[in-house]
Design a protein around this nucleic acid. Structure first.
Lengths: 201, 201
DNA sequence: GCCTGAATATACTGACTGGTCAAATCAATT
DNA sequence: AATTGATTTGACCAGTCAGTATATTCAGGC
């Protein structure tokens, strides 16, 4: 009985695009609908509110992003290699996004999370949650590197947390300066923080 | 002939407060006026637009912040001590702000910069500019630490840039999680990045 | 005491906001 | 072919937005 439709998916895509390149409050429901080629009534057929659309869009975005994360953090490669691949993935991804949108966009979770943390508790929590998932990859990698003796000792949670903060901070600077070269010191600094020898020198 | 008034200053204060705790687009001119106890007509007497008010508010905010920076980065103390004091200043400041507003607010420059980078070129540039001023303190401190032999060698600009990114990233995480303990690994990670021995262990 | 211009006050604009609604459409099931 | 219900449509709210217009107030210089 259902009429097949990709309107819902188009709304998710449009929302992520627009919120990422601009901001949550800077983008109107009308804009999202126009980009998605969907009428406003349909919007509210699929989602109860603008916030709920954002929640769904970010959750869906993570599902895609997760595929690449699982590949990079594959247990097939050494912990050190995973960390380096992770940096490469981030840089490559930012390049693609910049080519698509014409400017450096940084991390969408960080952008919307910062913007909405003091305004919308639900959105704040979604972003916190996504960061925690990201953190788990890093923490277990650090832990494994330490037990295998390739990384200097230190609290794995604190180190992973620092790695995440460093990366997010760099992505944010890249967005504000609209310049990807901000990411240049990433690998070197990751190695220093994680206490592993830098393979590139 | 001028009627003395502190309306302008009250508008600057109100704007910084509201934009910091919420966001630029999430705060209306009416709200800013109400908080400042000023009528809308007066607002547009002093500032041509909401954006220009934000520019002025952030510039004025930096002037205050600069005093504390100059104290912390005084040439009286050793480079290492400056870096540690810097971390302490940031933590102390966040505590005060959190006590004032009831939640962790993070870095106002980073928040507004991220939000408006893709929307308002002027605001983007103001934030970029403020970060560059911050970076100069760090870079010259790193350089001095290296020449005095207390820090391991490495490109001072890249290291300072990483220190800045780490801090901004942590502040952002603290804002999103509304939890100051995110800053706990700050000193340790600063030492690792800067290549200096950690005095606290 | 009058003039000048900075400062205040408030009503107003037109565009836009997030969200609602009832009627229309259409594919799949029966 | 009739029924069903997911989907679409576009008009439509009431409220808010940034910014404007205009009249008024008031302190200092003369």
């Amino acid at each position: 009985m259902a009429r097949p439709s990709d309107s819902r998916q188009r709304l998710l895509d449009a929302a992520l695009d627009l919120i990422w390149t601009q901001s949550f409050e800077g983008v109107s429901v009308d804009q999202i609908c126009e980009r998605a080629g969907v009428n406003k009534g349909s919007f509210y057929h699929f989602f109860p509110s603008k916030s709920e659309l954002a929640v769904a869009a970010y959750e869906a975005g993570w599902q895609e992003w997760k595929l690449q994360y699982d590949a990079v953090f594959s247990l097939q490669s050494t912990p050190v290699q995973r960390l380096l691949d992770w940096g490469r993935l981030i840089r490559k991804h930012q390049q693609e996004i910049a080519a698509k949108y014409g400017r450096i966009c940084g991390c969408p979770v960080s952008s919307m999370g910062t913007e909405m943390a003091g305004i919308d508790e639900k959105l704040r929590h979604v972003c916190q949650d996504l960061f925690e998932r990201d953190l788990r990859y890093l923490e277990s990698t650090i832990r494994e590197a330490q037990t295998s003796g390739t990384a200097a000792p230190g609290d794995p949670h604190a180190i992973a947390s620092s790695l995440q903060a460093l990366t997010i901070g760099m992505l944010q600077q890249a967005r504000i300066r609209n310049d990807l070269s901000v990411l240049d010191p990433l690998e070197e600094s990751v190695c220093r923080l994680a206490g592993i020898p830098n393979p590139s020198r």
